[in-house]
């Protein structure tokens, strides 16, 4: 296994195939919990943990899982890791558990995890699969943390609970509500897509 391939699998999820900004997967938790920056990090890390371990286990078992029952097998594996995350978070991070609530259990049906299991881990050896899970997870974490910083800044005037706005700033309540989530997700998506397109054009021009 050469480093090139591992690095490619890792960086793939962060930029080229960023689950939120490029693949537009996992929109449900993204819209629901990104009203607070700490939620973004918490949800991102929980998802990353599940992604890495479900990718690893599915990759290890890819020859033991018959094609016909792969979907229920994936569900069992993913649900197991989600339950572990949920119990650990409930036990050691009660505040985060309370704010994320039902969305921790709903990581089970996060399409990013399923997509990576089906399209990557089931066909690739364990090490690359771990890197893929890690990259996708970090990409997801970065994306939703960015989005939740924007929403928290506009909606409450703070980022990670610290005030960043001048006195006269009146928080826009809509930014922390679901409707504002859609609007800001769209806007952030446009900005990020624009930036990536520009950097690609530059690269091509340099060639």
């Amino acid at each position: 296994m050469d480093w090139q391939k591992l690095r490619a699998a890792f960086t793939n999820g962060i930029i080229q195939e960023n689950p939120t900004f490029r693949l537009v997967l996992g929109m449900c938790p993204t819209l629901a919990i990104t009203y607070q920056a700490s939620n973004g990090i918490g949800m991102g890390l929980a998802t990353t943990f599940v992604l890495v371990f479900s990718n690893l286990v599915i990759s290890l078992l890819r020859k033991a899982i018959p094609e016909k029952i792969r979907i229920p097998a994936f569900v069992i594996i993913i649900a197991t890791f989600v339950s572990i995350v949920e119990m650990v978070m409930h036990a050691y991070f009660p505040a985060l558990y309370d704010t994320l609530g039902v969305f921790i259990s709903l990581i089970v049906v996060n399409c990013i995890i399923f997509a990576r299991a089906e399209s990557f881990a089931f066909k690739n050896p364990p090490l690359v699969s771990i890197m893929d899970g890690l990259g996708m997870g970090i990409g997801f974490t970065l994306a939703i943390t960015l989005l939740s910083c924007v929403r928290e800044l506009l909606g409450s005037g703070t980022v990670f609970g610290t005030s960043f706005m001048p006195e006269w700033f009146e928080p826009m309540a809509i930014a922390v509500q679901p409707a504002g989530g859609f609007i800001l997700l769209g806007s952030t998506l446009a900005v990020v897509t624009g930036l990536i397109a520009r950097s690609q054009r530059k690269k091509e021009a340099a060639k």
Binding site: A64, I65, P66, I69, P72, A73, I76, I77, A79, T80, S83, I84, M87, V88, H90, A91, Y92
Partner: peptide, 20 residues
């Protein structure tokens, strides 16, 4: 085979549950 997967998963969850 599926039952075996579920069994292993249940064992893991039992351990984590015991700790948490």
């Amino acid at each position: 085979r599926l039952m075996l997967f579920a069994l292993v998963a249940a064992l893991m969850l039992a351990v984590v549950n015991g700790v948490t």
